[in-house]
Design a protein around this nucleic acid. Structure first.
Lengths: 239, 239
DNA sequence: TAGTCTACTGAACATGCGTTCAGGCACATC
DNA sequence: GATGTGCCTGAACGCATGTTCAGTAGACTA
């Protein structure tokens, strides 16, 4: 499951830390510490871990916020690159984040993203919107391939699914405590949640169409009104 | 949808703040501010808002952590009481939290819980486990009533559903920014997510049983091996 | 060689935090 | 009236934080 030192994609892992620019080393250290313990970690801790003085950090990045912004930009860039290389494997949305966390080289990046989602802000929204869009395209492809039933509101369904996947992960990580190994969370979660998720996603959670139909009769939908594709009739919900 | 000043259950809302013990007033203020802005709010802010000196806060609660623990205990007690009064209405799990957030008197409590889930710790785990257990009983009742299909692992499915519901809410709140009206998040979320959730939960997300069956053939399950209740045959996944 | 620029440091500064402490005030008890 | 006994406050303490600043070391340029 976990690859790590292999692969063409991990240019980063091949560069020993002492060969990096001091600036890059500080940035990488910050991403690692932010990801491990949240954005509360101090400039002194980052500086010490990177083997420099606290003053040098602000010399390079202006302030702690400046460092944070640089980390955001870098993480977003790394994810974009990882996504473009992984596009042929079919990874998307939550799966992309999951893959990131599994590959050891990218684990700090994934941890940083999860921390970012836990506090909100610029990168969080940006990253989440990107995942929703990916999910929408991915699900649309599944619909076209016939393995996913069409939705009355594809955008809402994509957002729902993304929010569910990422939210579950976020909560699972939060419940573990302040210092979590995000990769471990991903692995554990994938292990126990596969069966229930497959059950819910193939057999559904409701044995009949009562709830959906009564909702649709209250808030009629174009697809069900015109019945273009022979879907279930709206009708009054039976109870 | 939002009730507020009505109802037998809201003993709290009927007591004007000036009639409360100073200790209780500090506790309520802390819950409100913690819920609104997270646990980063200072003792000075809480004291000022409650109309007392910072020193009095630690006089009553020993320390900020002491205050936090008292808030946790109180919130847990309020939720238990609310649950016991709402048990006949059939509210449970996420629905309980949702109902809490909708009723204006309980909104600070719900907000506090969400903040608590966002940082982890004692109350978070306790509250979440309680929700999972509620969900398990609730879903079991649904299965018995025939409106929910049985699961191969009811405990895992209950945890999955709870994690999804609460996680979605948590992430939605996080994405809104640092100071959110949790009640508003609940209302907005309920508005747009009803259709996609009903779709996914009644029609599923997969048009056929391929994924589930291939998983079950790789990790056989007792129910599907013995076929006690005439469920789908495991068989090799078709593709 | 002198000048300049960049990377970098140690020490100090300002600020906000949780917390402590000496004491004031009201009220009950003897 | 004297003596506690809780509730409560203003001011200060200790600490950690982000940030500033004067100054050093080395490399590159004129």
């Amino acid at each position: 499951m976990r690859s790590g030192t292999s692969g063409e994609h991990s240019k980063r892992g091949q560069v020993p830390p002492e060969d990096l620019t001091t600036r890059a080393r500080i940035r990488d250290t910050a991403i690692r510490l932010f990801g491990r313990s949240g954005f509360g970690v101090g400039v002194r801790a980052i500086a010490t871990e990177a083997g420099v003085s606290p003053a040098l950090v602000v010399h390079h990045f202006g302030s702690k916020d400046g460092l944070r912004e640089e980390c955001d930009r870098y993480v977003l860039r790394v994810v974009r690159e990882a996504k473009s290389t992984a596009v042929e494997t079919g990874a998307s949305g939550t799966h992309l984040l999951s893959n990131l966390a599994m590959v050891d080289d990218y684990a700090p990046t994934a941890a940083y993203i999860v921390r970012s989602l836990a506090v909100g802000g610029g990168l969080a929204s940006q990253f989440f919107d990107q995942m929703v869009q990916d999910a929408e395209e991915y699900v649309a492809a599944g619909v076209e391939a016939g393995i996913i039933p069409p939705s009355r509101d594809p955008a809402a369904r994509a957002r729902f699914l993304t929010l569910s996947g990422v939210g579950m992960l976020l909560l699972e990580a939060n419940l573990r405590g302040p210092d979590v190994d995000i990769g471990e969370v991903f692995r554990d979660f994938a292990a126990w949640s596969t069966l229930p998720s497959l059950e819910v996603y193939t057999e559904g959670l409701f044995a009949n169409r009562t709830f959906l139909d009564s909702y649709l009769s209250a808030f009629p939908n174009e697809r069900d009104k015109t019945a273009t594709d022979g879907g279930g009739e709206p009708g009054a919900g039976a109870g």
